[in-house]
Design a protein around this nucleic acid. Structure first.
Lengths: 202, 202, 202, 202
DNA sequence: AATGAATGAGCATTCATTCAT
DNA sequence: TATGAATGAATGCTCATTCAT
């Protein structure tokens, strides 16, 4: 009984969420600069002006989206990593999460891979914010592995982190651009096969 | 006789070149969408309207730039690879060329890493054009290595190519965004150390 | 009985009054066109929508304010003039009232001098309403003085009224714009010194 | 021959002028805030965007108009005053110029009397700029008259200047708002009759 | 070929007003 | 009465592109 009453309230509170979702869809479809605020409003089923009750500007929508998505992703990552002790398995988990997460939402992936890179300005803020933290997590896991004698020591953890991230990132970008439809998650093992063992025949 | 005919052509080519160079500088500085055609014209030292004598639209400037840059890069790559037979050394050469080339021209690197990704539309055309060819070259070199028993066979060459490309690409992106100034070229060996041998301790 | 009926009315009148007062403060501070209804509501301590329970539109607030302020002023003026018989003293009283009244409330003065002139449309309505009556009072007093042989007859009373009003009005405008803080009321005598005796040495 | 060639050029150079004239007409008709830039452009016979080739903003149009009109008026005033030595005649010239000038161009008068007062902000800049200079000229002439023993000395020249200016200003405002059509210039003598001799019967 | 003034479609944002609660 | 979230029309300004010279 109480629920049937609280639902509309919840729905209203989720208007911000609805705008965010609509914006991602629109941005993914036409690109940030080609998307009009009116497009977002229409996609969200609200009036143009209403967007500005929840966001200060079109720009802020993109930022808010990124901030939240990144924070969520990192929180979820940390949660899952806490249950794993082996650095090798940790990296595996990271790679899987990365690809499964983006592979599960094409629009989100497009915005992450494509739109968020549309400006150096954004990328620098982006870098300063959650992205740097993500790279740190990978880097620390590599350090851990080195300390445990699992990973070779003649490699700077920062560089290793960038390599792994770059490889995963490229998987996502290719997946987005690909005309063929395939599952992104399973690519994690392929990437790790190389990252862990290299391509050279022993 | 031939000269009197080729001179204007050369002259024309130079102005086109000047516009292209100016555009890259401007795009790198402010982003494609935030750059005005007037900015490019001013940077090139010509009138606004003159831009349209050499390019059909602002968009075409970006495309032309990419087409030429990519074609040049691939031509140079093929030239250098032709002199190498060992697939391992070929990949090394590719990695070095990739990083040295972009590391030598920050503006060019910024446009490649940042601006060319500002829209799915462009990335798809981008992908269709020279980029696919670049990936192919890497892929073929890996196949070659597999055939020669140098590279492990339980890895799809396409995937290997993406991994290597992704790792290099991330090196460039990080270099661009980094506040510190360092040489990009030497990172090639770091990337290959992992790509060839993996991070696991033997 | 009468009370239970008049109380809500009083309450209502108070809120209307509060909105009016808030509006004057806001209009005086930022100008009519730059003031938002939301500003007024906030200054009055009520919700935006509530404004529309008391006023039909933003425009009507300004009109209402003027109508009431002018009516009050004229009523007070007539009351005081009724006690005076000498036209010279009457004009003195008018000048004093004019300057003391506006000099006592800077916000009111600003709205009167500045905002009420922001549109020909308003000024014409303004003119049609209380302003014409105010000028009439001055004019009639001058006529009275002429009939009593106190004022020269080679002057049209209408013109005289405009001159006196214009002089007083300019005192107010200058006082508003002045960075220095001084009392406006005492300027009445200065104005009358000239109005009555002229500037020429006898 | 040369003329038929230079005329279009002159016409082009006068586009700024045309916009200014169109703007005054539009502002006078609907008020500054109610006038759209598109209205001005249409009235000037040009495209909307062209306005911005000559003026930085809608606001700048109003400012430019005032600056130029005031500067012109003051220059003309000084020129004419230079030929007069008697302070009494100087003031007469000022009053005549004031009323004749505004009386000759109703749109200009409306913008001066009505629109330029629509904001305290503008009036303060206005005051700081040409208006203060205009008042100064009147004030100095009164001082001159006092030194020559023509004007009574128990009157501050600043106050006298404001009174005269206020009276003239009110003549203009009334003329604008009047439904009857009459010449404004001749009112100068009426104003001066009072300003010089006062309204009291000797 | 080159110019740069002119164009006018396009768009983010504001804000007076409404209305469901 | 009161609220304040929602509306959506309105508009100043930008800028890619054109074109007369």
């Amino acid at each position: 009984m109480a629920r049937s009453n609280s639902e509309p309230r919840t729905f209203v509170a989720d208007k911000r969420e609805a705008i965010l979702r609509a914006a991602i869809k629109v941005f993914a479809g036409k690109g940030y600069f080609n998307s009009k605020v009116a497009d977002i409003a229409k996609a969200a089923g609200i009036a143009d002006g209403t967007v500005y009750l929840y966001f200060k500007s079109k720009d802020e929508i993109l930022h808010s989206f990124f901030d939240r998505a990144m924070a969520d992703f990192i929180a979820e990552g940390r949660r899952q990593l806490a249950e794993i002790s082996n650095p090798v398995e940790k990296l595996r988990r990271i790679a899987q999460l990365h690809l499964e997460h983006l592979g599960a939402d094409r629009d989100l992936a497009i915005v992450f891979q494509v739109e968020l890179r549309g400006s150096t300005k954004f990328m620098q803020e982006f870098s300063a914010a959650g992205f740097a933290e993500y790279l740190s997590i990978i880097q620390e896991t590599i350090e851990e592995g080195q300390e445990q004698g699992l990973f070779r020591r003649d490699l700077k953890p920062v560089v290793g982190a960038k390599i792994l991230y770059g490889a995963l990132d490229e998987m996502v970008t290719n997946w987005i651009l690909s005309k063929k439809s395939y599952a992104l998650g399973p690519m994690a093992d392929e990437v790790l096969k190389v990252f862990f063992g290299g391509v050279l025949e022993q």
